[in-house]
Computed example of a mutant assay.
Amino acid sequence: MSVIVKTDPTVVAQVVDLITRERTKALSVREWQHRIAGYGYCVRDTQYGQIVETLPHHVPVCTLPVDLAA
């Protein structure tokens, strides 16, 4: 079962691209999470795995790609 409901594939692709670029720039996971928070996103652990959410409303955007999982 997926937590993500009604997401636009274009938006998901842009968000994944953004968080991937920010991960390459960050020296640690903590810095990376701080950097993406500046763009209005966070990574949260759930029973379904790690998901990317918007801040401050915590609306799920997509699941975190496996290669970015901390």
Score class of each variant (00 low, 15 high):
residue 32 W to H: 07
residue 1 M to W: 00
residue 56 P to V: 04
residue 54 T to R: 01
residue 63 T to L: 11
residue 62 C to T: 07
residue 31 E to K: 14
residue 53 E to L: 15
residue 16 V to M: 07
residue 20 T to G: 09
residue 46 T to Q: 07
residue 59 V to K: 12
residue 35 R to A: 15
residue 30 R to V: 11
residue 16 V to Q: 09
residue 28 S to A: 03
residue 22 E to F: 05
residue 30 R to G: 14
residue 1 M to Q: 05
residue 35 R to S: 14
residue 37 A to S: 15
residue 7 T to G: 10
residue 46 T to G: 08
residue 32 W to F: 05
residue 41 Y to G: 09
residue 63 T to N: 11
residue 26 A to E: 00
residue 55 L to M: 08
residue 25 K to G: 00
residue 9 P to M: 03
residue 65 P to T: 09
residue 2 S to A: 04
residue 35 R to Y: 11
residue 62 C to N: 01
residue 60 P to F: 11
residue 11 V to S: 04
residue 25 K to I: 02
residue 41 Y to I: 08
residue 2 S to P: 01
residue 17 D to Q: 14
residue 35 R to G: 07
residue 58 H to Y: 11
residue 22 E to R: 12
residue 8 D to R: 02
residue 65 P to E: 10
residue 50 Q to C: 12
residue 57 H to G: 07
residue 15 V to T: 06
residue 67 D to F: 08
residue 35 R to H: 13
residue 63 T to Q: 12
residue 41 Y to D: 08
residue 3 V to C: 06
residue 46 T to P: 02
residue 53 E to Q: 14
residue 29 V to H: 09
residue 9 P to S: 04
residue 56 P to C: 01
residue 10 T to N: 10
residue 45 D to I: 12
residue 20 T to S: 15
residue 55 L to P: 00
residue 16 V to S: 05
residue 25 K to E: 00
residue 14 Q to C: 06
residue 51 I to F: 12
residue 4 I to N: 03
residue 57 H to K: 08
residue 45 D to F: 11
residue 9 P to D: 01
residue 25 K to F: 00
residue 51 I to D: 05
residue 53 E to M: 15
residue 52 V to L: 06
residue 17 D to N: 12
residue 33 Q to I: 06
residue 39 Y to P: 04
residue 30 R to C: 08
residue 47 Q to D: 14
residue 42 C to T: 14
residue 42 C to W: 06
residue 5 V to G: 06
residue 16 V to F: 05
residue 33 Q to G: 06
residue 21 R to N: 08
residue 31 E to N: 09
residue 36 I to V: 06
residue 46 T to K: 09
residue 26 A to M: 01
residue 47 Q to P: 07
residue 38 G to I: 03
residue 61 V to T: 12
residue 10 T to D: 11
residue 11 V to G: 00
residue 5 V to E: 13
residue 48 Y to D: 13
residue 16 V to D: 02
residue 18 L to E: 03
residue 61 V to A: 10
residue 3 V to L: 15
residue 28 S to I: 01
residue 48 Y to N: 13
residue 63 T to W: 12
residue 14 Q to T: 06
residue 49 G to S: 05
residue 42 C to L: 10
residue 23 R to K: 13
residue 54 T to C: 03
residue 34 H to A: 15
residue 34 H to Y: 11
residue 40 G to K: 02
residue 2 S to D: 02
residue 32 W to C: 02
residue 33 Q to E: 08
residue 6 K to T: 10
residue 44 R to S: 10
residue 2 S to L: 01
residue 13 A to D: 09
residue 49 G to L: 05
residue 35 R to M: 14
residue 56 P to A: 02
residue 57 H to P: 00
residue 11 V to T: 07
residue 44 R to A: 13
residue 2 S to T: 05
residue 49 G to W: 00
residue 60 P to A: 10
residue 30 R to M: 10
residue 29 V to L: 08
residue 34 H to I: 12
residue 34 H to S: 15
residue 65 P to I: 09
residue 22 E to T: 08
residue 31 E to P: 04
residue 61 V to G: 09
residue 17 D to I: 06
residue 36 I to P: 02
residue 41 Y to W: 07
residue 23 R to V: 05
residue 49 G to A: 04
residue 8 D to C: 02
residue 59 V to Q: 11
residue 37 A to R: 13
residue 8 D to G: 00
residue 47 Q to S: 14
residue 50 Q to T: 09
residue 68 L to E: 01
residue 12 V to A: 07
residue 59 V to R: 12
residue 1 M to D: 04
residue 54 T to Y: 00
